[in-house]
Nucleic acid binder design. Structure first.
Lengths: 342, 342
DNA sequence: TTGAAAGCGCTAACAA
DNA sequence: TTGTTAGCGCTTTCAA
């Protein structure tokens, strides 16, 4: 009956209070403490309060790594997002995090910086944590990453786009329809000479292509495209207008791939005393919180980012508990919010 | 020599490929695979390549929960932040995440929504994950949460503020000095009638108090204070100016607790044809990426958020590896960026 | 309602 | 350089 703590081998572990310590203090078996914590209904009132007291006195905090390993449930959800800084994904992440937290889950955040290489690395690292679910911004094209994701067996929510073949679940909207709708909106406003100010990412390109095709189908002038690549700043938006106005002075409407770029275009227009929307209509994408309260208020495409986050959290949690997916594809749609800038 | 997989007890676990499977395939002991993965230098070339091949063929992804449990190193860092949506903390988080990721760590994100109650809950939940480090926005006042944090033994970085008694490490700046510096800056510009537009959080209050004291010491008019509470929107900034201008038309300078509120004040000023800065100077706080490119360009207090994140990541990783903290308190300071609005 | 035993998938410690 | 053994701290399974 040697005391375990005086074993021959030197001590391992973190030295923190464990379930065992609490159990000893409460005079019960470790498993009873586990039950008092996880399914109190299975424990008698008397034992429960004794355990509670022991937990208080020791300031015990259960080790969720150990719990996760034993139960194959980590209560961790991972989110893979391109960027955080003033991005359209912020609301989604806040909503995701809030919904998860209220249910006892935690959020692991991964940022790809719009780089596919980084995304692949990140995904492997994420899978290694064995999260109960993974939220992905965008859809996973066939390839190594997609295969690994599927092989991992972890519930996946793809988002922010549409495809008939999601891995698991999908909450999104059609970028093609947005491009078309924006073009039609602008044309209906009487605009005839269009330009696009866009970042380099693939989803933006699909909006652009649809926009261009719609304009082209009507036999209007070619759409001038200014691509800012990875520089999604307000300043890039200003520079874009400066460049466009020189090369193609006839432009009377610009569709931007983000609200921030649109703000840049509007700012530069003001600098150049170009009247928005009288001389130039400007539209953004995202409907980020404050753009509706600026002067001129931005006309833009509204995406319900919060809802994407909440739905994703709910789906992921349900799915990890073995509940079948009700609706594998949810099309949240979008709305054009008409304000002053177009 | 019964096959383990035909044990009497029914199968547990996730069913995923494990170290053992890889080891069997490569014809080595499990620990050898572990070494090939974690310290390749300890393994012969020949064995290493056999292991690599087995890993490729099985698409094995190591279970980091198990690894973390066994080694008491989770390679997880937690960040506790008030908010994500268009917040001044975004850059810090991106930098934190980037630095961590490059070193093989992952970021766990916790959002408090500026609520202390939520923060306390979150902290317990975070400690349960046994992260190798915790990044906290702000400093931890004495109390239950602080005690638990200390008891956990996890390296902590407090930030975004200054105190002589951090738990562990501190990377921040003085809010009091900012309030004073902004007041002096505005006074030097010849402004005489001041107002503050502020959110309700405690750090903002400390900037405000210092600002007010500085003004008061010079015998100038009392500073009008408009508190927007938790509504940190551009719209709230607009409403604030509307209210202030009515109650105190003489105001010629406003200090806002965030850039977004400042943008709101400027927007409302434009609506009311109040010239900024000729009639009204406006200053913000944060120097969020795009405010320098707007019209008028915002004069504001610059905080090097990215540096806070990078330093915190470095400190946390070093500290979790047992390296003593070099500099427990780092005062990053701030700069007033003079642009057009003041 | 409570407990004993076994094991989740990995790594530290010791041994060869 | 490679392997054996014994856990890390918890939960599942089976038994009482």
């Amino acid at each position: 009956m040697a005391d375990k703590s005086i074993s021959k081998r030197s001590r391992r572990g973190s030295g923190a209070i464990t379930l065992k310590d609490v159990a000893r203090l409460a005079g019960v078996a470790p498993i009873t403490v586990s039950r008092a914590l996880n399914s109190p209904a299975q424990v008698s009132k008397e034992v429960h309060s004794r355990v509670q007291e022991a937990i208080e006195r020791t300031a015990y905090v259960p080790n969720r790594m150990a719990g996760g390993l034993a139960s194959s449930r980590s209560r961790l959800i991972a989110a893979v997002v391109p960027s955080m800084v003033f991005s359209v994904f912020n609301e989604t992440i806040e909503a995701l995090n809030g919904t998860l937290f209220d249910a006892g889950y935690q959020l692991m955040l991964g940022l790809t910086g719009y780089s596919e290489e980084r995304e692949a690395l990140l995904l492997d690292s994420v899978i290694g944590r064995r999260p109960d679910g993974i939220f992905i911004t965008g859809i996973m094209p066939p390839g190594r990453s997609r295969s690994r994701l599927i092989a991992s067996g972890i519930p996946i929510v793809e988002s922010w786009d549409l495809t008939p073949t999601p891995i698991d679940m999908l909450i999104g909207f059609s970028h093609q329809k947005i491009g078309r709708a924006v073009a039609q909106f602008l044309i209906k406003k009487g605009k005839r000479s269009f330009a696009i100010v866009t970042a380099g990412d693939e989803r933006a390109q699909r909006r652009n292509t649809a926009f261009i095709d719609t304009v082209r189908a009507l036999g209007l002038d070619e759409v001038a495209v200014h691509n800012v690549g990875d520089i999604r700043t307000l300043r890039a938006g200003r520079a874009a207008l400066a460049a466009l106005i020189t090369s193609q002075p006839s432009i009377d409407a610009i569709f931007c791939s983000s609200d921030l770029l649109a703000l840049g275009v509007i700012t530069e227009a003001r600098e150049r005393k170009i009247k928005v929307p009288a001389q130039l209509s400007v539209m953004g994408f995202g409907d980020v919180p404050f753009v509706g309260d600026m002067i001129p208020a931005l006309t833009t495409v509204h995406i319900n980012g919060g809802k994407i986050g909440r739905l994703a959290a709910l789906h992921l949690m349900a799915s990890s508990q073995g509940n079948a997916v009700q609706q594998p594809i949810v099309n949240l749609g979008f709305t054009i919010v008409e304000r002053e800038s177009a």
